[in-house]
């Protein structure tokens, strides 16, 4: 193919190049150019409008001494680690359950995945309603004869994140399940026959044979979940609005508020650059593993 293309020459290939113009422009201007622009302007003291008054790392110093940013980072850590562990475990268990050659597999899968079709706004609002202390689940259980029952995570600064995590798990575990199920279906049937002949119990086969074989699926899922975690924004907006107080603030909201509400652009740029750095920390090792390995092979 490549050789044929070379022989045809530049002019004959013009249509393909012309058709690729949107992609080239998007890659160079938006993904590369815009990112560099934001990093560059994070070293200025732009407020209402971007301007080039260089102040070095001042925005970053201010960022890392702002209480709201530190809370946002801590929240993202708690949310992120819980989401990673829980959605992988739940997603895998669901997939393993569906993989038992059961009847109605499609029905169960459709039910477990449907929340993923809904927006984070809808998800956040439903869970806000379910967790409503006066009329929601707390009210229901109290009505059953437990007047002292307390279940009000969204008004408690200690537990609000767990309310968000519950909603996010409801929304996203179906996707993880689907990816895991695809991975399980890729496992050779002979592996199962062999372990059955050997008399190895099923849970052991999953833990020590199947999961190690599914490493690529786990890595891809991990990368997907992580990039979703860092983007967390809509769900918090809908469910808690960042409250009570600052207790469910997240970095993406910090960026948005500083850029579009507090008219403190450079502070927003610095915060978004930190988000980019966090993504790079996950993506670069993964890209090396995924694509660096293939080139060697």
């Amino acid at each position: 193919m490549a050789q044929a293309a070379r022989r045809i020459g530049i002019l004959r290939n013009l249509s393909a190049k012309f058709a690729s113009v949107p992609m080239i422009l998007t890659a160079l201007i938006v993904y590369l150019g815009f990112s560099l622009w934001t990093i560059l302007y994070s070293f200025t003291n732009s407020r209402l409008l971007p301007q080039t008054n260089w102040v070095g790392l001042a925005q970053y110093e201010r960022l890392w001494s702002t209480r709201r940013w530190l809370i946002s980072i801590e929240n993202l850590m708690i949310y992120g680690s819980s989401m990673l562990v829980l959605s992988l475990v739940i997603g895998f268990v669901l997939a393993a359950l569906l993989d038992q050659k059961i009847r109605f597999e499609n029905t169960y899968r459709a039910i477990l995945l449907y929340p993923y079709a809904l927006s984070f706004i809808v998800t956040g609002l439903v869970w806000q309603w379910l967790l409503n202390p006066d009329l929601g689940v707390q009210h229901f259980v109290r009505g059953l004869g437990f007047p002292d029952f307390v279940f009000d995570p969204l008004s408690s600064s200690d537990f609000v994140l767990f309310g968000v995590i519950a909603a996010a798990l409801w929304h996203g575990t179906g996707l993880v399940m689907c990816l895991m199920l695809a991975g399980l279906r890729g496992i050779d049937e002979d592996i199962w026959k062999a372990t059955r002949v050997e008399g190895i119990p099923q849970w052991k086969t999953y833990l020590f044979v199947v999961i190690p074989m599914m490493k690529p699926v786990f890595v891809t899922t991990l990368v997907l979940i992580t990039s979703g975690i860092i983007k967390l924004y809509d769900l918090v907006i809908a469910q808690t609005g960042g409250g009570p107080g600052l207790s469910s603030e997240v970095p993406a909201k910090y960026v948005f508020d500083y850029m579009f509400q507090s008219q403190n652009l450079a502070q927003g740029f610095a915060a978004s650059t930190m988000m980019l750095a966090a993504v790079a920390l996950v993506i670069i090792p993964w890209a090396f593993l995924e694509f660096g390995g293939k080139k060697r092979a």
Binding site: A5, M23, A27, L28, Y31, L32, T38, A252
Partner: peptide
């Protein structure tokens, strides 16, 4: 089907770009 020189570079930028948080690109946009 019509690979030309350099096409893969732009495609790689695009795929890596998919992981960049929107917050980074939104203001220049």
């Amino acid at each position: 089907n019509w690979r030309f020189k350099g096409a893969d570079i732009f495609f790689t930028i695009l795929i890596i770009g998919a992981f960049i948080p929107y917050q980074v690109m939104i203001y220049p946009m």
